[in-house]
Amino acid sequence: MPTEKQLSVSDNEVLIELKKINKWYGGFHALKNVDLTVRKGERIVLCGPSGSGKSTLIRCINHLEEIKDGSIRVAGQEIDKAAKSIETVRREVGMVFQSFNLFPHLKIIDNCTLALRRVKGIPRLEAEEFARKYLDRVHILEQADKYPAQLSGGQQQRVAIARALCMEPKVMLFDEPTSALDPEMVKEVLDTMIGLAEDGMTMICVTHEMGFARQVGHRILFMADGEILEETTPEAFFKNPQHDRAKAFLGEILAHH
């Protein structure tokens, strides 16, 4: 049963604005003149075949990848060559990776407090209080003093979400957050993300979880060969995909489920 989506975000302020961005890996043109505007509270699902540039696109937003030309503006800050602009943007953008990327040598609680202390300069005790709040929110507070390797994949990914949330980002980026998980753990992570969506978080999710896309996505973007081929509501996309590539893609996804 899909929950009621927020009726409209179309009047909200623009949080992310990508204009004509081009990304090259050596001689390979990975993103071709991509435009994207994301408003506050908007939840975007990004899908497409492997190698289409989904990861590359969201990694450009927080400058994990450098673009060749085009402009990227996040929460009013344009990314330029200056390290300061990159830091400013990264402070506003949380990211969750397919392979969790927790810091294995730090306890769960320290994974969550590190950036608070080092980037925001919040004293340890205060930072821990903060971290507990978010660990509780992803229902994993009782694991705070363990190390990442002692947790299941689903638990680790929830910690990764809490770690990003601690910085109180304006936007959360998810890069296939459930595809490295055992099937029985997918739901706990998706539920956490749905919870975030219900609280109004602005999200861009690369995922092939079509149920999730339907339930929370305001818009779905279909990418192929470094371009956004379709941009529509999930309902329209699933019912009536326009491009042959999209039809083929959906056929494959459905065949796997």
Partner: peptide
């Protein structure tokens, strides 16, 4: 992924190396 996670969290060079 360790470097990427540090960068995504806006950690600077010193913290990335030291921590």
């Amino acid at each position: 992924g360790q470097i990427e996670a540090s960068n995504a969290l806006a950690l600077g060079y010193v913290s990335r190396m030291r921590d």
